[in-house]
Design a protein around this nucleic acid. Structure first.
Lengths: 182, 182
DNA sequence: GTCCTTGCTGTACAAAAGTACATGTACAAA
DNA sequence: TTTGTACATGTACTTTTGTACAGCAAGGAC
């Protein structure tokens, strides 16, 4: 009768909050937003049910926070790509970076989930547009805004394609298409 | 005390089934699948709650039927496009047809909803791929499978773009991009 | 050590949604 | 007209989910 209640783990508010957020993103990405429930998140994060409501007032808030997190992840990938972008070989470099991105199911599914929510919930549109707007901004200085937009659209399509196929488009095909568009 | 129960309307099983299905597609397209409940469908279709369960054994079955319906609608648009396709002016014609398609929010949102479900539920992938596979099949006879695939990917991207912006890409931009890719 | 604040837990209650079903009605066949 | 079947309706029950909350534990202040 030592433990009437299971011993709570170490205190770590920030880490716990992130664990919950991380679990929520994982559920959204693997099972879709419909499966995002407090209980599912708690189980995935390995925390008590109450903890999920403690850090996020409502399920909508949690969902939005998770989508924001996913958008930030993608945006950061694009930002890192910007740093290493060789302006003399944009199509080749872009093809390489994007292909690597497409091979990451989490990233691809996150992007599609964001698009789906952006269409039905206008308030979340900015999240979905974050990385593509950034990409267009980066590229338009070098290839003009029209071509940059075309590239961005093509890459969005490549996301969809990757999400619906077992293997994404090849890097070579990506390169050819980007060369054509630029 | 004539009507202990409100008079049921005329009998019309097929029409009623279609009304329910139509209401379900409308909800999916405008509010997302999360909002698809028996009660919401019944209200939108103007039928009693019980009717929704009578024609579709479970909510999952209804959801799947609605997604299938949406996929068929899109696929039919592509099929019609095929009939009027002028092989000498593929980019121009395609740009025109696609632009018209992109101006239809229902179609665009349906496509995105299908993609979202296709990524998380493998069983529904074929629905999402229906129209793009058909398009690739049509085009590859004339421009080769690689370019046809590139075009299909670009158009998928144009869907996402349209879903996240108030106005889709211009027909001119569409035409330029398609000319480049073909 | 004692206290005390904050974090963490499980449980309990309320709301929402899925589903079953008894009842009543229209339509057609007899 | 009568009657039987298939259809339509609303209600009731069950399950799932959201949310509130009372109590316990941990780690620092003193």
């Amino acid at each position: 009768m030592a433990d009437s209640l299971p011993a709570p783990r170490k205190r770590d508010p920030e880490g716990r909050r992130r664990a919950i957020l991380q679990a929520a993103t994982e559920i959204i990405v693997t099972q879709g937003t419909a499966a995002l429930t407090h209980r599912a998140v708690a189980a995935a994060a390995g925390v008590a049910l109450g903890s999920t409501t403690q850090y996020f007032a409502s399920i909508d808030e949690l969902r939005e926070a998770a989508l924001t997190e996913l958008a930030d992840e993608i945006d950061q990938s694009v930002a890192e790509m910007e740093a290493t972008l060789d302006l003399d070989r944009i199509p080749e470099q872009l093809a390489k970076e994007v292909h690597a991105f497409l091979c990451d199911p989490r990233a691809v599914r996150a992007d599609i989930a964001l698009a789906a929510h952006g269409t039905t919930e206008p308030r979340l549109r900015e999240l979905s547009l974050k990385w593509s707007d950034r990409l267009i901004e980066i590229l338009s200085a070098h290839i003009g805004v029209e071509r940059a937009t075309a590239v961005s659209i093509f890459l969005d399509g490549a996301m969809i394609h990757a999400g619906l196929h077992d293997t994404p488009v090849s890097e070579a095909a990506l390169r050819d298409a980007l060369r054509s568009l630029i």
